[in-house]
Each structure stands twice: as structure tokens, then as C-alpha cells.
């Protein structure tokens, strides 16, 4: 039933682990994507696109915060989750951690598009979550995400001619396999529990199928090829992600590409430098 579970006390140990895994996937995706988006601040092609991508970054950060906040139900605090977890404890998809080559705006736009289609589908599958706080928060996030997908599609269309086309194709080739990891499980058992407990009402396989049937025809319409295009048939919806189409590192299982370690090191730098991890706020007087 929608929102019937008010507190983790109503869950058994496996269900609590599954809830934690689901929330970490959601929060970490949003957080890490926002980190990458902010790299475009003061570096975007025009002042106007700079402002627009900054908005996206702040939206995603806000959503990450909403999800980390739900994780507090399970006894975590935001600063522990963001600043004190080891890099291999993060559960985001490798799509969001990949670095940008300087000036590769096409990469930012393709990533933005692939991610936000998935995000839309994922949120729909959480609208009727059995966990009350999840169902509560989906509406707020959805009100912002609709605009994101539109923004990404507009840019895809604008760049799809001339030099932009080739750059888009390169980005699709590079990012598509990583985007498929959005639908990888943390592990099979946990994934099964997520669906059985009704935390998410659709399986990852179903979400992947819908995603591929949305993105591949759209890309195809812009003359962009995907490795999966051969296997997407417009008269039948079925699609299964094949193991060989996935990258070695899949994020969800804690394995990440090298770029992630660098990124993690950068955003935890001040926290470490100030010694905040020592969990101290010893009030020493300056005199």
C-alpha cells in the first residue's frame, strides 16, 4: 500500500538494508551528477547556459539532500554519508562520475539527457512507494525534473547539426554503456527485496526497457547511433541489457572508475583539511 510504512522499525533487517541501498542509489546519483554539473559554472558556452546549468546543479543537490535526509531514519547523518564514506561505499551509477574533457559541452548535454529520462521513469516508479517519506518527496522532485528533460532535449536538438553532431555521437558512444548501469542492481537479493517490499513499484529490468525504448528512438531521430539500436524494435517493447554491453565498473556494486577517486578526494578536501572528520567542535578560546 502507498506510504503504509512510516518508520524503519516496521521493517526486518533485510528490508532495512534494501531501503538503505535504494536511498543511497538515489541520493548518490543526484549528488555526484551535481558535482559534475558545477564544473560548468563560469565555463559554460554563454552566460545564459551558465545560469541554466547552475540551476540544474542546485536542483540535483537539493534532491540529494532530500534523499540523504530520509537516510537519517536509518541512523545516518548527512555529513557522514557525504564526507566520511569511503569511495567504494558509494552506490551511484558510473554515468554520473565520468569526467568531462575541457569544452565538451556535448558530453554534458548527452549525460543530462540520458540521466533525466531515467530519472523521470524512476520517480514514476517511486510515486506509490510503500515507504511514506519516499512517496511524499517524489512530487516535489518531479515538479523540477520535467523541466530538466525538456532542457536536455532542446540542447540535443540544437547541437545535432554541424560539428555538434559528431561530438554528440562521440559522447553517446562513450556514455551509453555507463548509462545502462543506472539499471544495475546493488545485488540481486537486495533488488528483489526493494520490489517485494514495495519501496519501488517497478523492477530495474522494466525501467531499463522503458528507458531504452525512449532514448534510442529519440537519438535515432537525431541521426545518432547507439550500440543497442539493433535490438530495439519499435513493434515490440522487450529489451534486456546484455552483460557485454556494460562497462567493467558499474557503480551500483561499489566498483567505480578512477575518475571517481579524484573527484571524491577533491570534494572531501576541506572537510579533511579542517579536521571536521574528527567529529570535534572543541570550543577552544582564541586567546
Amino acid at each position: 500500500m502507498v506510504g503504509e510504512i512510516e518508520s524503519p522499525e516496521e521493517l526486518d533487517a533485510d528490508e532495512r538494508d534494501a531501503l538503505e541501498a535504494l536511498l543511497q542509489r538515489l541520493a548518490d546519483d543526484e549528488y555526484v551528477l551535481a558535482e559534475r554539473y558545477t564544473e560548468w559554472q563560469v565555463r559554460a558556452p554563454t552566460l545564459e547556459s551558465d545560469l541554466a546549468l547552475s540551476n540544474n546543479a542546485q536542483d540535483e543537490l537539493g534532491h540529494a539532500r532530500l534523499w540523504y535526509d530520509v537516510l537519517e531514519d536509518l541512523g545516518y547523518e548527512e555529513h557522514e554519508l557525504v564526507y566520511e564514506r569511503d569511495p567504494d561505499e558509494w552506490r551511484h551509477s558510473t554515468l554520473v562520475e565520468r569526467p568531462f574533457a575541457e569544452g565538451d559541452w556535448a558530453d554534458a548535454i548527452v549525460r543530462h539527457y540520458l540521466y533525466d529520462v531515467a530519472e523521470e521513469l524512476r520517480l514514476e516508479a517511486l510515486e506509490e512507494s510503500s515507504y511514506a517519506k519516499i512517496a511524499d518527496r517524489v512530487g516535489k522532485i518531479q515538479s523540477e525534473e520535467g523541466y530538466h528533460r525538456e532542457h536536455a532535449e532542446n540542447w540535443m536538438e540544437r547541437l545535432a547539426t554541424g560539428e555538434g553532431h559528431e561530438r554528440l555521437q562521440d559522447a553517446v558512444d562513450r556514455l551509453f554503456p555507463h548509462a545502462l548501469t543506472l539499471f544495475e542492481p546493488v545485488d540481486e537479493q537486495t533488488e528483489e527485496t526493494i520490489v517485494d517490499a514495495g519501496f519501488r513499484t517497478e523492477s530495474l529490468e522494466d525501467l531499463a526497457e522503458e528507458w531504452v525504448n525512449t532514448t534510442v528512438p529519440f537519438l535515432d531521430g537525431l541521426g545518432l547511433e547507439t550500440p543497442a539500436v539493433e535490438r530495439v524494435h519499435f513493434d515490440e517493447y522487450e529489451f534486456e541489457v546484455l552483460d557485454e554491453e556494460l562497462p567493467d565498473k558499474r557503480g551500483r556494486d561499489g566498483s567505480h572508475t578512477d575518475a571517481w577517486n579524484d573527484l571524491h578526494d577533491e570534494f572531501t578536501r576541506t572537510y579533511r583539511e579542517l579536521g571536521r572528520s574528527e567529529a570535534t567542535k572543541i570550543m577552544e578560546t582564541a586567546e
Binding site: P45, W105, E163
Partner: peptide, 9 residues
């Protein structure tokens, strides 16, 4: 590095 985008626009 993003001159190409402005050119496209």
C-alpha cells in the same frame, strides 16, 4: 574550448 558551441548557436 566552448567556442564551437557559440558558433553552432
Amino acid at each position: 574550448a566552448v567556442q564551437w558551441v557559440r558558433d553552432t548557436l
